[in-house]
Design a protein around this nucleic acid. Sequence first.
DNA 1: AATGAATGAGACTTCATTCAT
DNA 2: CATGAATGAAGTCTCATTCAT
Lengths: 208, 208, 208, 208
Amino acid sequence: MRDLTDRQRQIVDHAIEMIGEGGLSGLTMRRLSERLGVTEPALYRHFENKTAILAAMLGVLEAETYERLPFDQTATPDALAAHFDRLFALLTERPALATVVFLDEFATTDPELKSMVSELLAKNRERLATAFSAMRTHGLDGAVPVGATPPSSIPDPDSLATLLLGGVRLVVREWRLDGCRWDLAERGRRLVAALTTTMSGAAGAIGA
Amino acid sequence: MRDLTDRQRQIVDHAIEMIGEGGLSGLTMRRLSERLGVTEPALYRHFENKTAILAAMLGVLEAETYERLPFDQTATPDALAAHFDRLFALLTERPALATVVFLDEFATTDPELKSMVSELLAKNRERLATAFSAMRTHGLDGAVPVGATPPSSIPDPDSLATLLLGGVRLVVREWRLDGCRWDLAERGRRLVAALTTTMSGAAGAIGA
Amino acid sequence: MRDLTDRQRQIVDHAIEMIGEGGLSGLTMRRLSERLGVTEPALYRHFENKTAILAAMLGVLEAETYERLPFDQTATPDALAAHFDRLFALLTERPALATVVFLDEFATTDPELKSMVSELLAKNRERLATAFSAMRTHGLDGAVPVGATPPSSIPDPDSLATLLLGGVRLVVREWRLDGCRWDLAERGRRLVAALTTTMSGAAGAIGA
Amino acid sequence: MRDLTDRQRQIVDHAIEMIGEGGLSGLTMRRLSERLGVTEPALYRHFENKTAILAAMLGVLEAETYERLPFDQTATPDALAAHFDRLFALLTERPALATVVFLDEFATTDPELKSMVSELLAKNRERLATAFSAMRTHGLDGAVPVGATPPSSIPDPDSLATLLLGGVRLVVREWRLDGCRWDLAERGRRLVAALTTTMSGAAGAIGA
DNA sequence: AATGAATGAGACTTCATTCAT
DNA sequence: CATGAATGAAGTCTCATTCAT
């Protein structure tokens, strides 16, 4: 994903906002150009396609999400919670992202974008799964010395990752559907806690 | 709107299939009529407009999903697992539903549909939440006598419901994105198990 | 080429006329629809594509040209002359055809049409070549009895066909470029005569 | 307009190549500028507009064709054959010219170009006609002394010129349509021979 | 109950060209 | 001499919908 020019970045930003407001179908070249105060053909000087705009958007999202939400080296429940706290804060601050980040509509529209979304999704889940794997190895508090018996009761990291990511997606989605009227951060924190405390209980049971 | 005629039901069925193939944007009145072997105006004999078709579709989905997937009275982890097993079987058998059931695209298109989707989603989650509540009250095996101390380590039923529902949605979504090429039932079972066994561990720790 | 409906035929006729006036680039869906007194989308009820219209046009041209210009069984110079007389009369009567019949622009626009044009051209030339072959076999007046030595001085039928067809095409083209201001039939007759009399002379020389 | 600058010449050359590849509609200012490695406005430094480029192109073609294909003073069949041999060699070497040289599409686009094409065509034909006239006067081998009775069987020089030029154009066109896959020189030689030998036969018959 | 024909709005895209820098 | 940014006009095509029959 080559670096975007200022204008390109501007276009992408407006596109995100528009999708936030009216979904993917709310983003048309015409309306996008109007919002930028130019005519439609002007957009084509900066992007080859509408698809190119969407692709750039995915790139920006990936960069922004990953850079603004770096994953802690130490994979503890607290680190996880902090990570998602930052995510919820970001989405609260810029709700349009909430529509776009979890954008599965893309999948049906353009085959080219389909794989991009697919990959992005997979990468997200793998990062989480890796974190859960680490917890299994080093203990939930990261304190288990190397070589010690892992608390094997922590199950299938992949499934845990799917549960957490899916849960987060769902809560964000409901928040959007409800017009962002309630406190996403609070509800989200409870969600993440629900998983991590359950795990703590389970791990503690064995560790005891 | 209730009690669809045969023809209406036929239309809705084809619509489901078409959305399964090409997403919401893959469903056009033209293509729908072609698939039914009639012309477009014919559709308007049976439904007022496209929105009405989608609304009817949601109704059918609700009925079909809920009727074919009755919730067991006994809210035990096993009952949950069985429930979702049935869901995965249904989706494997008729993959088009996988696209439609979790259709959030709807939200952006039509305000009328938006609330329908919202409600459907909420109802789903509440049913699950109720189940988790019951587990908290009666123990995971449903054997805790009324009045006994609940295993309080089972957290926030709403969050658990969101995690499970979200996780299921996500796994189904990935399955579709991958072209339904892997075994949804197997992967899904692992997912549900991941949550219930974690809960068992936690509950057991305290109960012991 | 399935039979065209009345409306389709109407569209094709107007298309021919428009190409006659402004070349292939003079034919736009917008202008075509305007001339028919309808809006653009109406055209798409009758033809899938602009290409489909052009293809139908080629079909009509082939039919009309070949049916209105049947080739005499007896392949004599006079028959040839008569044939082309009919062609020149047809073009004079409906000059738009002159632009379309020899339309090579098609070749560059649409790969699908390219082969249609190619074939049409080849068929035309082959018919002529067959006629020249017959002359070689049966004599220019068709009177040489079977088995007699052919007047071998009549050369390469294919080349003769190319010369004649090419000459006719060129004269028609010049006529169009000059705004159809001179007598195509007269000039065309001289052209055909130039070839056939030359052949007569040559054949006579040997036959003598 | 005369005496193109280096840059102008470069532009025209690329334009020829592009028309060769995609027809007149394959030549756009955008693509032309891309191929030259500059932006569009740069082209307007060198030519007033697209028409000017095409006009310059016609000029170049005329010059190049006529200069590289000088007409022999002696108008004999052999000289004609040699002339066209050189033409076929030129086209084989640079097939793009084949599309451009006989470019009648031009006629429909721009009235200014229309007359240029018309004139070019006429000049071509007249040169040939003059040659045929000379043959009529001086005999096919150029040996008939001035004042002798011309072999009157050689008909209408104008028509002969049209036949030959038209035939050549057609054979070149078919060669292009077939993707330049066969030997143009060989096929072209046969074509020219077909006319000249026919004439020889006819003339010989009388001359004898 | 269905069709044939049409429509208004609007989708994405391309073209030749211009203007300030 | 060239660019970056933009434009007006126009291109083909699709969509949901309507109306007379």
